[in-house]
Structures are given as structure tokens and as C-alpha cells.
Design a binder for these strands. Sequence first.
RNA 1: UGGGGAGUCGCCAAGCGGUAAGGCAGCGGCCUUUGGAGCCGCCAUUCGGAGGUUCGAAUCCUCCCUCCCCAGCCA
Length: 546
Amino acid sequence: MTTEAPPKPRDFIREIVEEDLAAGRTARVITRFPPEPNGHLHIGHAKSICLNFGVAGEYGGQCNLRFDDTNPTKEEIEYVEAIEHDIAWLGFSWGDNLFHASDYFDQLYVWAEELIRADKAYVDSSSPDEMRTMRGTLTEPGVESPHRNRSVDENLDLFRRMKAGEFPDGAHVLRAKIDMASPNINMRDPVLYRIRHATHHRTGDAWSIYPMYDYAHPLSDAIEHITHSLCTLEYEDHRPLYDWLIENVPVPSRPRQYEFARLNLNYTVMSKRKLLRLVEEKHVSGWDDPRMPTIAGLRRRGFTPAAIRNFCERVGVAKRENMIDVGLLEFSIREDLNTSAPRVMGVLDPLRVVIDNYPADETEWFETGARKVPFAKTIFIERDDFIEDPPPKFFRLSPGREVRLRSAYFITCTSVVKDNAGNIVELHATYDPATRGGDSPDGRKPKATLHWVAADHAIDCEVRLYDRLFKSENPEESGNFLDDLNPQSLQIVPRAKLEPSIRGAAPFTSYQFERLGYFCVDPDSTDDAIVFNRTVTLKDAWAKVK
RNA sequence: UGGGGAGUCGCCAAGCGGUAAGGCAGCGGCCUUUGGAGCCGCCAUUCGGAGGUUCGAAUCCUCCCUCCCCAGCCA
């Protein structure tokens, strides 16, 4: 019997989890994915989702979905629903473990009073400006607020009146009493609660004070018995505060926070603020515009959950800043669709070809793949599959040359018809009846195989061709990212010619249009007007030699 | 100039003192009724730099350099 070494953990997070499990520090791993419902999920969130749900799944644990809804002025129910849909679509399930930070508002409030009683929190009545000034700078310590030494009773009274709605927004805040001289600015008496007279999407008008992320998050984790609270690098500085709260509040468990690098993708933006601007200022058609890096956008573009999951796995989890090439995302979707998408033929930029020796009134139906494709005297081929005076490495159609029409016949171009301006408007050709199906009995092998569609049987479809939304790799980098928008990011082909088998295809169905790429049916489609989105092109060796 | 992180192939990323995994991209070749796919091969004498410890260093020590994050009553 051979003993194989146990597979090593794929990343440092799983390494930590395995150690904790092995050492008995926890019997079961519980993670959580904590979105704020103030925007749609994007591919960066997908990385976090795959990590949190992935780790929980692999080690027999559980991953909670918890909405971090502590700021009623920015959050909306519409986002909640979209987020749940996106996570489920990606293939992950939170089961019964759907929670909200707002579920814990009562408990959080009780604990805040306890902090006050323990003289570990106080009500500050300084203005935001005053607080900023007193906080000090990166190199200078802060100074203590004049309200810092209010009595417990006075703090309790004020805090209760804040809760009762007696004060206007901004009049007071509750602060932790830690250390105004800490080199870590997050420890300089951070704000725990602020007054917000706003209607919360779940708690309505029950509250006029709301906890801050730094207060709500660790305590919510503890309430849910989260063992590993995974977040991104910018929270590293907050960990001492996270731990301070866990230690100074009588919480029921001892969660630990670990930080990993967020995903960055080139040629796009990932911040919710910027994505929101693209939507609000109509630079894109919506959160689900196929050019958006949102889950909804990728879905509409034709990406599959498996492709996104595989992408996230390839990207890995580590602590160094990264900028992933979109090429890797494209590889992931090609890889998936290559094995699953039915092949079909469609011509984006049609050039008419008349096969002179083919009977005018005949239509043959070639059975290929799972469908039948009609062939007739007049067909369309792709305009750039013909060059009148071809360069050396070009082996598609040109005068006198024979090529194969995929699954049909060999044809030889006999003449070129031009308009007065010299534009090619039509080609004439002859076919070899002996090559029916695409093989020659004499073993002739054309150097090229072209896709085509019979003119009289073609269905006109709108095809939307997408390119990267931004011109430069890092649009965030210089000045206004909107100046970097790629004006060519969407090109519409109003009347592409598609083979008739695609009639009736349901939205989100993916096909490979042979030699062109993967395309999927857009939900804008109607029964008699199908719209396709190009998900991704095929790799194009000819483009390289060109 | 304070604090917290990070530097291994063009882009990711393993490596945890025993002589640089893997993926993407790229480059050759084979094969092919998609210039696709598939298959085969190539692709870091060197790990931000300089010293040091050691029989042996990407891994340990020292100094230096570069990049990222933090001064919301956002998350």
C-alpha cells in the first residue's frame, strides 16, 4: 500500500484552518460572507465568496451570508435581492444561515451600555471637524476630547437619549476609550455609534443610532460563532480594534480575523463607487451591462458559474497586491464553453457567394452536430475570409483558390463582382459535387475551412460585440477614470446572418459560432428578433500572423 | 517623518535550511472538416539590493531600496 502525502492546503488561509482544526482550536470551521447591500456584487466579491464558501465546504463547516446593514442611508432592499441571487447563481448555498447585522442591534446596544459602565466607552459631543483635528496625524498623536472623562452616569444618560432620538444627526457619537496616542489611528478612540435619523430597510424607524462597521462586525462574528473572519488587506490595521472589542465585550465566542489581497482585474474598475457612477451616468446600460465586471454583467455576457469559480481558483489567495490579466478570465470561460457550447454557424459581415453550378431551386440539409443546416446556391461567407490579392500566409478564399465550406462542399472562387466604387459586392464560385459533406474522395485537402450560411434560410440577428470597457490597464491610476473609457467597447452588428437552427433559443443559451467565438442569447431578445452577445472570441492565430 | 502589510518568470502563484511546483501568456512542433480544440516540447543557474550565518540560504540574521494601506460620524 502506498501512502500518499496529504494534499497540501492551497493557500495560507486553508493552512491556518487546517492547523486550527488539527490543534482542536475549533471543532468546526464557520466563515461568513458579509456584503453591504449598497451595490451589486462583482468579480472581486466572487473571489471572496469562493474563498469563504469554499473553505467552509471543504472542511465540513458552514458559511453564513450576513448583510452588513449598519448604514441605512446607503443601503437598499433591491441590492439585497440581487446579492442573494448572484451568490446562489455562482453555485453556493448558505442554507438557513442568512443573517443581518441589524438582527443584532438590540444585543449590540446592550453591549455598548456595558462598555460605558466599564468606563470603556464615552459619549463625545465634538463636531466631526473637531474630532478630525483632535485625532492627530499619521506622525503626531491625537489629543483627548474634553468630553472623554464624563461620568458613567452622564454617558449612560446621553447614550440613552441618543437612542431615544432626542438629538439631531451629528450631535453626539459613542466612542471607545482606548488610546489617543496610539500609532494606529484606528485605536484613537474610534467611533462606535452615530446618530442617523434614517429609515432602515429592515428595522424601519426603530433606531436613531446605528453601530459602525468596526463595532458591529467583530461582535456579529462572535454572535454567529464565526471561527475565521476573512477580509481584505485594508482591514489589517483594524484587527487590533477587532480584537479589543472581542476582549472587552462578553461575547459568546472568539473569532479571528485574517486578511487576504483583494482581486484586481486589468482594463476595468472594481470599486463600488466607480461602478455606481458608470451606471448612474449611463456610460453603461446598467449593473448588468455585459461590459461590467459585476456578476450580473458577466452572467449576461455569457459567463458560467463554473468558469468564474475556476477563475477564482486559478487566481489563488495570498497577501500580495495583484493585477490579474483579463486574459485569464477569458481563458476560463473558453475552457468551459469549449466543452459545453453547441457549434453553430453565423456570418457577422456577410459577403454573397453564388455557386454557379449548383441548382437554383435546390436546398440540401446537412446533418451536423445535433442540428440540420441548409445549403443552397447563394450563401454568405465572412467578408474577411476573402482577399482578392492574398498575402503569402493567407489561406482562405481568393480567386482561383479552393476552400472547404464546413460540413458542405469544396468551392472554388471563379470571379469577383464589384460596384462602381470598386467595392467587392459578390463572388462567383463553382462547387465539386464529389466533396459532399466536406471530404474529397481523391484526398484533396484545402488549406482552409470556412463557415457559411445559406442566404435564403438565414435568420437576421443583432449581435453585440464587446471589447474592454477601458483603454488602459489601470483606469484608476491617472486622473478621471471616465476619460479612459473605450469608445469601441460596444459595437453592434444589426443584421448578422445566422443558421436557422438557432431560432427560438432561450435567453442565456450559449453557442460557439464556429471560427468566431462564443455568443449567448441576450434577454433583450424577442420571439422574432434574437439578440446575441459575444462572450469572448476564439483564439485567433491568423490575427497574430497578420 | 508614525503604524500596518508586501516584494519569487510578462501576469498570477507554490516554496516553511537540502539545491526554484503549477496555471495564464509567449515560442516551436504534431494533429485537425473551426488558423479553434487537443497533444508534445521550450520558457527563472535564480528569488528587490548589499552584507553575514551555514557543508548548504528564496527560506535564518543585519542594513538598505521599492510598492500598497491607514488621519469617514463609509464598509
